[in-house]
């Protein structure tokens, strides 16, 4: 049972190691999807927004982690 818990925890940590980073990435994806679905934005433009959003989220996450000293 303990091992199952450890495996479950490892699986969660694989994708949600940093909850804030994961949540922000999901928001970027949801934003791109919403633009395509509801605002009729050009698909490639929404794709570009997805790419740039992820890059910005990454840099900001590293900067914030360094600033607060967490890992």
């Amino acid at each position: 049972m303990t091992m199952l818990k450890e495996i479950g925890a490892e699986l969660v940590a694989m994708f949600l190691g940093d909850a804030r980073l994961s949540l922000t990435v999901l928001c970027v994806v949801a934003g791109a999807a919403a633009l395509i679905r509801f605002a009729d934005v050009d698909l490639l433009a929404a794709g570009g927004l997805l790419l740039v959003g992820c890059l910005v989220v990454l840099i900001e996450s590293v900067r914030r982690s360094a600033q607060v000293g967490d890992n």
Partner: peptide
């Protein structure tokens, strides 16, 4: 794609912090 983004960016974030000497 979403799972890869979460997984890959978590790795990249940690690798960047390790390269910077933060962790």
């Amino acid at each position: 794609g979403i799972l890869l983004l979460l997984f890959g960016m978590t790795w990249l974030r940690k690798a960047s912090l390790r390269a910077a000497g933060v962790i």
